Simulated scan of single mutants.
Amino acid sequence: MTQRSMRDERRPANDGRRVAARNRAALVLAAREIYAEYGLDAPLCAIARRAGVGQGVLYRHFPDRAAVATAVLEENVRQIEQAAAAPDADLVTVLGVLTWHQTQSSAFISVLHTDGASCPSDTPEYAAALSGRVERALRAHLPDGHRLTAAKDDLMIAVAMVSGAVTGRTREQRERRAWAAWRLLEVEVGPVCPFSDEPCGQPPLV
């Protein structure tokens, strides 16, 4: 067997890994969109259709409903951590990314209330771990003397309060209510957007 033929034989496996990674990313994105529109009880087949894959592909990546929701939550937290780690990051920018995920994910809102009652694994430890990662990402950019430093729990209480205000049938409605809640708390928030190149929402004029 020649060296060239050996390289040719390996290509399908590499392509398969790339396709699998793309399918998984598409499924997580589709799940976030479906959950935002229809809630956590939406059928898994709707997620597969939105992602453009068969339901068998979904089950190869995620064995059950909890695994799908967990993947969405992990991606939410990962993007907030990425935003916090960016060279030009500040609290205003990171809060904008956090708020985008609040307006997109009802499961994420439950986690930010930190009681664990509605997290996919039904364990308070799971919710607390994710909430703790969010808190560390935010606190890394919390300036001394900021109004959210008055007491130890003020930061995450404020986040939970905003989460409770995020309601509405459309993303625009949910964003407007989130901005209003932060404004009432007298906390500045940057553009509401994911940590990516997607267009960002701007605070409405009031």
Score class of each variant (00 low, 15 high):
Asp197Arg: 07
Val159Trp: 07
Pro43Met: 05
Gly116Tyr: 12
Ala20Thr: 07
Val162Glu: 03
Glu198Met: 09
Ala84Gly: 03
Trp179Leu: 11
Val189Ala: 04
Arg22Gln: 09
Glu188Trp: 09
Ser131Asp: 13
Val68Glu: 00
Ala36Lys: 08
Ala85Ile: 05
Glu81Leu: 00
Ala127Met: 06
Val192Gln: 05
Gln104Gly: 03
Arg133Gln: 08
Glu9Gln: 15
Val77Ala: 06
Asp154Tyr: 12
Gly54Ala: 01
Val187Gln: 08
Ser121Glu: 09
Ala158Ser: 13
Asn14Thr: 14
Gly168Asp: 13
Asp41Gly: 10
Glu135Ala: 07
Ala86Thr: 01
Ala84Gln: 03
Glu74Ala: 06
Gly190Pro: 10
Ala140Cys: 12
Ala150Ser: 11
Lys152Ala: 11
Gly145Ala: 04
Pro199Val: 00
Thr114Ile: 12
Arg10Ile: 06
Leu29Ser: 15
Glu135Gly: 01
Trp179Tyr: 14
Asp115Tyr: 04
Ala178Gln: 00
Arg18Leu: 15
Gln55Leu: 12
Met6Lys: 10
Ala85His: 04
Ser118Glu: 11
Leu155Gly: 12
Gln173Met: 15
Ala178Asn: 04
Val134Gln: 12
Cys119Phe: 04
Pro204Thr: 12
His113Ser: 14
Leu184Pro: 03
Ala181Asn: 05
Phe195Val: 14
Pro87Thr: 06
Ile109Gln: 14
Ile80Gln: 03
Met1Ser: 13
Thr167His: 11
Val28Met: 02
Ala21Trp: 04
Asp8Cys: 14
Trp182Glu: 02
Arg183Lys: 09
Asp41Tyr: 01
Phe108Gly: 08
Leu130Asp: 06
Thr114Arg: 13
Glu75Trp: 02
Gln82Cys: 08
Arg10Tyr: 13
